Amino acid sequence: MATERDAVVQRLRDVGLRVTGPRLEVLQLLASGEHLDVESITDLARARLGTLTSQAVYEMLRHFMETGLVRKFERPGRPAVFELAGEAHQHALCSGCGRVANVSAEVPPAPRKGLRGWRMAEAELVFHGVCPDCRQQP
Results as ranks from 00 to 15, higher is better:
1 M>F: 10
1 M>I: 05
1 M>Y: 10
2 A>W: 05
2 A>I: 00
4 E>M: 08
4 E>N: 02
7 A>F: 11
8 V>G: 00
10 Q>G: 05
11 R>C: 09
12 L>T: 01
13 R>Y: 10
15 V>H: 07
15 V>M: 07
16 G>T: 00
17 L>N: 03
18 R>S: 11
19 V>R: 15
20 T>C: 00
21 G>K: 14
22 P>M: 01
22 P>E: 02
23 R>C: 01
27 L>R: 08
28 Q>H: 02
29 L>G: 07
30 L>M: 07
32 S>Y: 08
33 G>Q: 15
35 H>Y: 15
35 H>M: 14
35 H>V: 08
37 D>Q: 11
38 V>F: 10
45 A>M: 09
47 A>P: 12
48 R>D: 07
49 L>G: 08
50 G>R: 01
50 G>M: 03
50 G>K: 01
50 G>I: 01
50 G>A: 02
51 T>M: 03
51 T>Y: 13
55 Q>A: 12
56 A>Q: 15
57 V>A: 14
58 Y>F: 09
58 Y>C: 04
58 Y>N: 10
59 E>V: 01
62 R>M: 06
63 H>C: 03
63 H>T: 02
64 F>C: 05
64 F>Y: 02
64 F>W: 00
67 T>C: 11
68 G>F: 00
68 G>Q: 09
71 R>S: 04
72 K>D: 02
73 F>G: 00
76 P>S: 08
76 P>V: 11
76 P>R: 06
78 R>D: 09
80 A>P: 10
80 A>E: 07
81 V>M: 01
81 V>W: 02
82 F>K: 08
83 E>C: 10
84 L>Y: 04
84 L>W: 03
84 L>F: 01
85 A>G: 09
87 E>R: 11
88 A>V: 05
88 A>I: 04
89 H>L: 02
89 H>C: 08
91 H>S: 06
92 A>G: 07
92 A>Q: 05
92 A>F: 08
93 L>P: 01
95 S>T: 13
95 S>Q: 10
100 V>K: 15
100 V>W: 06
103 V>I: 13
105 A>S: 13
106 E>Y: 03
106 E>G: 05
107 V>Q: 14
107 V>I: 14
108 P>K: 14
109 P>F: 11
109 P>M: 15
109 P>I: 14
110 A>H: 04
110 A>F: 03
111 P>T: 13
111 P>I: 10
111 P>E: 04
113 K>D: 15
114 G>L: 04
114 G>I: 01
114 G>T: 02
115 L>G: 13
118 W>P: 00
119 R>H: 15
120 M>Y: 05
124 E>W: 12
125 L>S: 06
128 H>P: 00
129 G>D: 09
129 G>F: 10
130 V>D: 05
130 V>C: 09
133 D>A: 11
134 C>T: 15
138 P>A: 06
138 P>T: 00
138 P>K: 12
